[in-house]
Computed example of a mutant assay.
Amino acid sequence: MEYTHLGRTGLTVSRLCLGTMNFGPHTEEADAHRLMDTAHERGLNFFDTANSYGRDSDGNFQGRTEEIIGRWFAQGGGRRERTVLATKAYANASDWPNDGKLSALAIRRAVEASLRRLQTDHIDLYQMHHIDRATPWEEIWQAMEVLVAQGKIIYVGSSNFAGWHIAQAQDAARSRHFLGLVSEQSLYNLLDRTVELEVIPALQHYGLGLIPWSPLRGGLLGGVLRKEREGTRGRSGQGHTAALLAKHRDRIQAYEDFADELGTDPADLALAWLLSRPAVTAPIIGPRTAAHLDTAIAALDLRLDQKTLDRLDELFPGHQPAPEDYAW
């Protein structure tokens, strides 16, 4: 396993982050526990979750995924101590006022509930799942400072922020002599490269680590057309993902053909490309089995030369930093 620091911090994390969003809805608890044990055996120490993961079939908030992780921690054996635990807050736990978003009261309630479900006394990386435009940064940072002082959280991160939100947050934190954000979790993959315009330049400027989510774009970059021919295509054949495949089918076929030329798996190629990108700390992977986990780990050994990177840019054009991308 390879390790790196999370942004400008001294915190050491694995270069792949275990995503847990499937725990509960698609991965049974016993299987999730085995998968987390296997992740530790393979050297992954960075796990990501959220208080909103594990909703029931009607979409009701349950926090089930955090509970599954909490019962795994409760088994002992150094499971909690060996894990850099990241979770998130923002989603509404109910339709009652102050039961969601990022007011100081909502943050306090959310962190206490997550700590109970996770059966731990602290969260290593506490992330804001979305920007809250109604709450001033002074209030948010005051709430986070209290949690740090109480030892309930150690670092603060963002998720799905725009570049100017990151700048706002860091400016407000600096005025309070507070560390501020240390990471941003964004949608980033070969098909979705919008963050290259302003988010990644902001991360580089402020020293934040980038934790890309959906690195395989719901399976579209994981050999979906080959699986379609083999009859093994899974959830990538449903809903929005199916519409994306119809739109980009020729491009994805060319991508899979290129992976074949290189003698590598399309999923490995997509992860290796992300690992080569500026500011990227650890893509979030969502394996359902130990075999899927081992496949993702194999991407760490794949080094892409400039010719390969150029070809990927031809297949999936990216962005220059703004404003050069759209102006002189």
Rank of each mutant, 00 (worst) to 15 (best):
A259D: 10
V146T: 14
N92W: 15
P278H: 10
I297Y: 02
G234P: 01
A322K: 04
E112H: 10
A282S: 13
T83L: 03
G100W: 09
L190M: 15
R133Y: 15
K227V: 04
A134M: 12
K101Q: 13
S183H: 11
F61N: 08
E314D: 14
P287M: 08
L304N: 14
K152A: 05
Y90Q: 11
R116Q: 11
E67D: 13
L216G: 00
L302W: 07
Y188Q: 07
R109N: 08
D171I: 11
R288M: 15
A91N: 09
K307D: 15
R71Q: 14
D301P: 00
S159P: 01
R34K: 11
V280F: 01
R117D: 03
R193K: 11
T194D: 15
N92K: 10
L221K: 01
H205V: 01
V148I: 10
A86G: 09
L6C: 02
G234N: 09
N189Y: 06
R235E: 03
D58S: 10
P212A: 12
L274A: 00
N51A: 14
T38Y: 15
T264E: 15
A93I: 07
S14V: 05
Q185N: 06
D305Y: 05
L181Q: 10
A291M: 10
R193I: 12
G237K: 07
A143D: 02
R233E: 10
E81Q: 13
W213E: 03
K307S: 15
I166M: 12
L6K: 04
D124N: 12
D56I: 04
W72K: 02
Q168W: 09
H292S: 13
S183W: 11
R233H: 12
G318K: 06
I123H: 00
R233K: 14
S14W: 06
V111N: 07
A143R: 02
W141D: 13
L221S: 00
D265M: 14
L293R: 03
F73C: 05
S158M: 08
W72F: 08
W96M: 11
L102C: 00
E198S: 13
E261S: 14
G218V: 08
S52D: 15
E139R: 08
A162P: 00
L16K: 06
G209C: 05
P323F: 11
D294M: 10
T281P: 00
A246V: 01
R288S: 14
Q62L: 11
A110T: 05
G222C: 07
L245Y: 08
D305N: 13
K152H: 10
P323R: 09
G43V: 02
T65L: 05
L216K: 00
N98H: 13
Q238W: 12
H165S: 07
G222R: 03
G77T: 02
L191F: 08
A282Y: 08
G263S: 01
